[in-house]
Amino acid sequence: SAEQAANADAGILFDRIGLLPQRQAKSRRNPMNRPVREIGVRIETGKILRIFSNDLTAPAEEIAALYKRRWAIELFFRWVKQTLKIRHFLGNSENAVRIQVAVALIAYLLLQMAKADQATVTSPLAFARLVRTNLMHRKRIDRLLKTKPQPPGNPRQMSLQW
């Protein structure tokens, strides 16, 4: 049928309605006693993803597309937490989250550009730490690792090496 052909194009392997078991574990009763829908989707990697939903009327392609978009959002926030080092958002509004992500992204890109401009420090983490410790010093990036030369000592004065 035309519906099965559309499902095959979307990667839908199966679409079935059933009931979950009455008990999920030894002492836990199943809170979901209504029919649920299981949709099997083959993703780009070739793996089969099983999606459970309580929406019995929406087309399988629509439910699969919703989960695909949701997964993309999950991956984006995982990247934000790991790469931009945002552990929690300072505000709850959409504008506050957008501004915080934009500022963190700008800082990340500036740091990457500065790291690419130098060859002394190869580790991104070491470079970020170096910039963080010297953030308020007005030094060129290539001179961050160089120590100040010791003033010439008086040959007539005794000096101690620590």
Rank of each mutant, 00 (worst) to 15 (best):
I51N: 06
T133S: 15
K68D: 08
A116K: 13
T57P: 14
T57V: 02
D15W: 03
V101A: 09
I99L: 13
A104T: 06
I12H: 02
K139M: 00
I12S: 00
K47W: 02
R87E: 06
L56S: 06
G40K: 00
W162V: 13
E62D: 04
A128Y: 02
H137Q: 05
P124L: 00
L19F: 02
V97W: 05
V103M: 14
M158R: 15
T122Q: 07
G40H: 01
R138Y: 01
L75A: 11
F127I: 03
K81S: 11
A72W: 04
Q150C: 10
Y67A: 10
A116P: 13
K148V: 01
K85I: 09
E61C: 03
N92S: 11
L105R: 14
Q112E: 06
I48N: 09
T133I: 02
M32R: 10
N30H: 11
R78H: 09
D15Q: 06
L66G: 06
L66R: 15
N92F: 06
A6M: 04
G153M: 08
A116C: 13
E62I: 00
Q112S: 10
R78M: 12
N95I: 04
A58K: 07
T120N: 11
E74W: 02
A119T: 09
N30D: 15
I99S: 07
L66V: 07
G40F: 01
Q82F: 08
S1H: 06
V41P: 13
I86M: 11
R34Q: 08
F14W: 04
P35A: 07
K139V: 01
V131C: 10
I39Y: 02
I39C: 15
N7M: 04
A6Y: 01
Q157N: 09
A8P: 08
L75S: 13
T147S: 14
Q118F: 02
D9R: 03
E62S: 07
I73S: 15
L125M: 12
E61L: 03
L111R: 09
A72D: 13
W162M: 09
Q100A: 12
R28Y: 14
A6Q: 04
K148G: 09
R129G: 10
F14C: 05
Q24Y: 11
E94C: 06
P31F: 03
L105I: 15
R69H: 13
E3H: 05
K148P: 12
R140D: 01
R87C: 08
N33C: 11
N95L: 07
N54F: 03
L19I: 07
E94K: 03
L90K: 12
P31E: 08
G153L: 13
V97A: 07
V121A: 11
I63D: 02
A25L: 05
Q82M: 06
A128R: 06
A25S: 05
W79C: 15
P35G: 09
P152F: 02
R37T: 14
V36K: 11
A96P: 09
L19P: 01
K85S: 14
P21A: 14
R129P: 15
D117S: 11
L56H: 10
L105V: 15
E62G: 01
G40W: 00
